[in-house]
Design a protein around this nucleic acid. Structure first.
Ligand code: MN
Ligand code: MN
Ligand code: ZN
Ligand code: ZN
Lengths: 140, 140
DNA sequence: CCATAAAAAATAATCTTTCTCTCTTAATAT
DNA sequence: ATATTAAGAGAGAAAGATTATTTTTTATGG
């Protein structure tokens, strides 16, 4: 928790239990949760925390670059404490979202820059398919 | 309009003025409009059309593969009658969404398949930046 | 034409996200 | 330690996007 406190302070943010809890949770999961999911996981430890606080905190963390926002095409956003741009794969069977090895795409941005007159500053790469468990289910 | 009628009939869909108008509009624009935008453009010609009809029609067209749904990270979905998977670039200045030359990515899906145990069936590639007009604005 | 099933219209409801207002608290300087 | 103050948290309302429900209208095959 010390490091997380430091991260917040570095950015001039007040260190509050809610911020610590939300950032800590995101830094120790790889499930790319939604605001709703984060709220449900934390509300038992922080009974007074409201969903609005989760949203507001996520916005603050996003704006200071401590987390990134994903949208894989559902109704709601997901959040990720791994802030380097990296590709994701979504299971169309169970809805889970996982990281993909990013080494595959190292010169993709360069290619794009060559082929467009936009000033390119970011990217979001999403792949869709079926995870091993869901493939097995389909074969039964 | 003949071809559009045929497309709907091929899929066993009733040919209604609303469906013709919505699909025709999407097939002749490259602006990747939202449901709201489509509604606003068409309501003058179809004064009784409701936004709910636009949503329902878009869902039908999507489910039959006549259009695809995009989510570039705004609050709402955009729709595209070009149904082949192709990359998009979003202007962070003016919000416009354009197609990118897809030839750059021809073996991307193959690369992904090599590096994951998912059964990969689709992809969404979004790039973010500033269009030439917005770059010019920023320099003034 | 007519019957019938499907679609459109109208409207309400739901779901996610944002806003506003008030109260509390963390950070800082004394 | 205490006081000050500016930022954040909480509650609830509100907004915005999408979906569901009910009734009316329309497309289409016979
Ligand atoms: Mn990730
Ligand atoms: Mn497109
Ligand atoms: Zn799965
Ligand atoms: Zn622009």
């Amino acid at each position: 928790m010390e490091e997380i406190t430091a991260l917040l302070k570095q950015r001039g943010l007040k260190v509050t239990p809610q911020r610590l809890a939300i950032l800590n949770f995101l830094m120790h999961t790889n499930e790319h949760p939604t605001a709703e999911t984060i709220y449900k996981k934390l509300v038992s430890d922080f009974p007074t925390m409201s969903l609005a606080t989760v949203y507001k905190t996520l916005e603050v963390l996003k704006n200071t670059g401590l987390i990134q926002e994903l949208n894989v095409g559902e109704g709601s956003f997901r959040y990720d404490a791994k802030t380097t741009p990296h590709p994701h794969i979504v299971c169309l069977g169970c809805g889970k979202v996982e990281d993909l090895d990013e080494s595959i795409f190292k010169d993709l941005l360069e290619e794009v820059k060559k082929h467009t007159d936009y000033k390119v500053v970011g990217q979001k790469l999403y792949f869709y398919g079926y995870c091993p468990a869901c493939q097995k289910k389909m074969n039964n």
